[in-house]
Computed example of a mutant assay.
Amino acid sequence: MLENVRRDRRVRAIAFPQKTLARPVVIDGVGLHSGAEIHMVLHPAEADRGIVFRRTDLVSQGREVSDIPAIYHHVAETTLSTAIGNAAGTTISTIEHLMAAFSALGVDNALVEIDAAEVPVLDGSSEIFIEKIEAAGLEKLDAPRKAIRILKPVVVEDGLKRAALLPGEGFKLFFEIDFDNEVIGHQEIEADLHDPFFAEDILRARTFCLRKDIEAMWAVGLAKGGSLENAVVVDTHAILNEEGLRYEDEFVRHKLLDAVGDLALSGLPLIGRYEGSRAGHAMNNRVLRALMADRSAWEIVEYSEACHTAAPRRAELSAIPAD
Rank of each mutant, 00 (worst) to 15 (best):
C209I: 11
R162P: 03
Q187P: 05
R253N: 07
A104H: 04
P144G: 15
E275Y: 07
A88Y: 01
E139R: 15
V107S: 03
G50T: 02
T78D: 02
A290V: 09
E134V: 13
L203S: 05
N109Y: 07
L2C: 15
G89F: 09
V25C: 14
L2R: 15
D48V: 07
P24S: 12
S266G: 10
A293P: 10
I130H: 02
W218H: 11
T236G: 14
V25E: 03
V65P: 02
V121T: 08
H194D: 09
A45D: 03
I92V: 14
I71M: 09
H281A: 07
A311R: 09
A101C: 15
A47K: 12
K152D: 08
D48R: 12
M99Q: 08
K212D: 10
V121W: 01
A163D: 03
D67K: 06
N230P: 01
K172W: 06
I133S: 00
P269H: 05
E229F: 10
D178K: 12
P269I: 02
R145V: 04
V119D: 01
F53E: 00
E37V: 08
A136M: 11
E242G: 13
P196I: 10
H237W: 13
G261L: 03
A143E: 14
E299Q: 07
L21Y: 04
R289A: 09
E157R: 13
G261A: 07
I68H: 00
D249P: 13
I130F: 11
G168E: 03
K255V: 05
G62I: 13
Q18E: 11
A297D: 11
R278P: 01
R286H: 09
L138V: 08
D8H: 09
L291G: 00
T20A: 13
I71P: 00
L58Y: 04
T94D: 06
H43K: 14
L228F: 13
T20P: 06
A164S: 10
I150G: 00
D192N: 10
A231E: 04
W218P: 02
G244C: 12
R253C: 01
A13G: 15
S81N: 15
G267N: 03
L203V: 10
S125E: 12
A310F: 02
I189S: 01
H186F: 10
L58D: 00
V41N: 08
F16N: 12
I84A: 02
W218R: 15
L42S: 12
K224P: 04
M292T: 08
A279Y: 02
F53N: 00
D294T: 12
D180I: 13
V156T: 09
R149F: 04
F53S: 01
F53D: 01
V41M: 12
L166Q: 05
A45L: 04
E169A: 10
Q61E: 15
L42N: 06
R204T: 09
L80G: 06
V112M: 02
A87H: 13
F179R: 03
A100N: 07
S126E: 07
D180S: 14
P69M: 06
H186K: 14
R273S: 01
H237T: 13
S81I: 04
L222T: 04
A315D: 12
Y247W: 15
